[in-house]
Write a protein that binds this DNA or RNA. Structure first.
Length: 454
DNA sequence: AGGTATGATTGGTA
DNA sequence: TACCAATCATACCT
C-alpha cells in the first residue's frame, strides 16, 4: 500500500463533524474500520491544517499569505489535497450526470450541410454548390451572362472570405480565452482543489458558448448566400428573353417541323448550341443526371421554349399565321432546293439514298420526321421514295409555299394560308409518319380559330 | 402605368 | 419521363 492510500485511510477516519468541506459535503465514512499505530499524531496534524484553512479568511492579508505559505509547505498538504480533489470530483460527477455528452445540434448540422453545399465551407475551389457549378459551366461562354456569373462568384467569394475570417477570429478568441481560463484554473489549483476533469469541463463550457456564437455566424452566412442566390440565380426573377437570332432559329425549326414539333435530345442540344442559350436561363432547374450539366440545362430551356410554343400556337393559331407565313417564305427557297436535290438524287441514284443535306437549315438526326409520301406534295409519281430527315423539315415549309401559291385565301386577309393540318381534333399533333394531306378549305384555320380563342 | 409577350415553374397525366 | 395546361414573374412595348 502506497503512502497516499494510507493517508487517505487515515484522513477518512478524522471526525470532521461540524465542518463543511467545499460545498458542505462531509467526508465519506472510512473504507476500512481500523486505524494505524500513529493515528493520533496524524489526526492532530490534519486537525491543525483544517483549522488553519477554516480560519484563514478571518485573518489579515499578510497573516493569510504567511499562513498560506506555511500550509503549502505542510507535510500533510499533498495527501489532504488529493483527497479533497477526489471528493470534489465525486460530487461533481453526480451533479453533472446526464448533461454530459449532449447530442449534435440538428440545426447546426443543417447549417453546416448548407454551407458545404453552397461552397462556403469545405474545400476552396470546386465546392459542391449547384449554383457555383452551373456558374462555372456558364463561364465557358462569352455571353453577357458570364459577367453576371463572375459577379455572383465574386460575391460568393466575398461571403466565403468574411465567413472564414470571422470563424478564424472566433476560434482564435475561443482558444485564447480557453488558455486564459486554463492558466487561471491551474494557478488556482495550487490553493484549491481543481481536478483536470473539472478543467476539461470548463473548457467544454467555453467551447459550447463559442459554438453558439459560431452558429449565429453560420446562420447569417446562410442567409447572405440565400439572398445572393435568389438575387442572382432565380431564373424567374432574372428571366431574359432569348436573343432575336435564337428565337429565329427556334421558330425556323418549329415551323419547318410543324408536323411534329418535338425535337429529339440531340436536336435540342444542337438548337441550344446554335441559339447560344445561356445556362443562367434555367439555373434553378434540377439537373437531369447528364454528364454535361450545362448542356442539359440549355436543353431544358429549349424544351421549355418548344413546350410554350406548341401550346401557345395551338391555343391561338390565328395569331401565329403571320409568323408561320413569314418563316415559310423565309425558308421556301432553301426548301425548294432541298427537295429538288432530293428528287434529283433519288432519280439518278439509288432510291434509298438519303439527301446528305446542303439544305442550310437543320440537319439533325432523328428529328422525328422520318419519311414522307411526296405525292401528297406535288401529285407526281414520286411515290414510295423516302426522303431524309433534313428534307422533311424543308418539306413542311414547302407545303406552306404550295398552299400560298395555291391560293386558299378565304378573304381573311391571307391569314389562313398556313393551317395546322397536323393538329388532332383534340389538340394534339399527329404522328409525323402519317402526315395529313394538304390543307383543304373545309379544315381551314377558321374552325380551329373559334376553338382556341383565348 | 397597364397590357402583352415570353421564359420558367408546377401539378397532373399517360 | 416527356408532355400538357395553367400559372407565375419578369421583360418589353405602348
Amino acid at each position: 500500500m502506497d503512502d497516499q492510500s494510507r493517508m487517505l485511510q487515515t484522513l477518512a477516519g478524522v471526525n470532521l463533524a461540524g465542518h463543511s468541506v467545499q460545498g458542505g459535503m462531509a467526508l465519506p465514512p472510512p473504507p476500512h474500520g481500523h486505524e494505524g499505530a500513529d493515528g493520533d499524531g496524524r489526526k492532530q496534524d490534519i486537525g491543525d491544517i483544517l483549522h488553519q484553512i477554516m480560519t484563514i479568511t478571518d485573518q489579515s492579508l499578510d497573516e493569510a499569505q504567511a499562513k498560506k505559505h506555511a500550509l503549502n509547505c505542510h507535510r500533510m498538504k499533498p495527501a489532504l489535497f488529493s483527497v479533497l480533489c477526489e471528493i470534489k470530483e465525486k460530487t461533481g460527477l453526480s451533479i453533472r450526470g446526464a448533461q454530459e455528452e449532449d447530442p449534435p445540434d440538428p440545426q447546426l448540422m443543417r447549417l453546416d450541410n448548407m454551407l458545404l453545399a453552397e461552397g462556403v465551407s469545405g474545400p476552396e475551389k470546386g465546392g459542391g454548390s449547384a449554383a457555383a457549378a452551373a456558374a462555372a459551366a456558364a463561364s465557358g461562354g462569352s455571353s453577357d451572362n458570364s459577367i453576371e456569373h463572375s459577379d455572383y462568384r465574386a460575391k460568393l467569394t466575398q461571403i466565403r472570405q468574411i465567413y472564414h475570417t470571422e470563424l478564424e477570429k472566433y476560434e482564435q478568441a475561443c482558444n485564447e480565452f480557453t488558455t486564459h481560463v486554463m492558466n487561471l484554473l491551474r494557478e488556482q489549483s495550487r490553493t484549491r482543489p481543481i481536478s483536470p476533469k473539472e478543467i476539461e469541463r470548463m473548457v467544454g463550457i467555453i467551447h459550447r458558448k463559442f459554438s453558439s456564437i459560431q452558429m449565429q455566424l453560420k446562420q447569417s452566412t446562410c442567409e447572405a448566400v440565400m439572398i445572393l442566390r435568389s438575387r442572382f440565380l432565380d431564373a424567374r426573377r432574372k428571366r431574359r428573353n432569348f436573343s432575336k437570332q435564337a428565337t429565329e432559329i427556334l421558330n425556323e425549326y418549329f415551323y419547318s417541323h410543324l408536323s411534329n414539333p418535338y425535337p429529339s435530345e440531340e436536336a435540342k442540344e444542337e438548337l441550344a448550341k446554335k441559339c447560344s442559350i445561356t445556362v443562367s436561363q434555367s439555373l434553378v432547374k434540377v439537373p437531369k443526371g447528364k454528364g454535361n450539366r450545362g448542356s442539359a440545362l440549355q436543353q431544358t430551356s429549349v424544351s421549355n421554349w418548344f413546350g410554350n410554343k406548341r401550346i401557345r400556337y395551338k391555343k391561338n393559331i390565328g395569331k401565329f399565321q403571320e409568323e408561320a407565313n413569314l418563316y415559310a417564305a423565309k425558308t421556301a427557297v432553301t426548301a425548294a432546293h432541298a427537295v429538288a436535290a432530293a428528287v434529283q438524287n433519288n432519280q439518278t441514284n439509288s432510291p434509298t439514298t438519303p439527301n446528305s443535306g446542303s439544305s442550310g437549315s437543320f440537319n439533325l438526326p432523328n428529328s422525328g420526321d422520318m419519311f414522307m409520301n411526296m405525292q401528297s406534295l406535288n401529285g407526281d409519281s414520286y411515290q414510295g421514295s423516302q426522303v431524309g430527315a433534313n428534307v422533311q423539315s424543308q418539306v413542311d415549309t414547302l407545303r406552306h409555299v404550295i398552299n400560298q401559291t395555291g391560293g386558299y385565301s378565304d378573304g381573311l386577309g391571307g391569314n389562313s394560308l398556313y393551317s395546322p393540318h397536323n393538329l388532332n381534333a383534340n389538340g394534339g399533333w399527329q404522328d409525323a409518319t402519317t402526315p395529313s394531306s394538304v390543307t383543304s378549305p373545309t379544315e381551314g384555320p377558321g374552325s380551329v380559330h373559334s376553338d382556341t380563342s383565348n
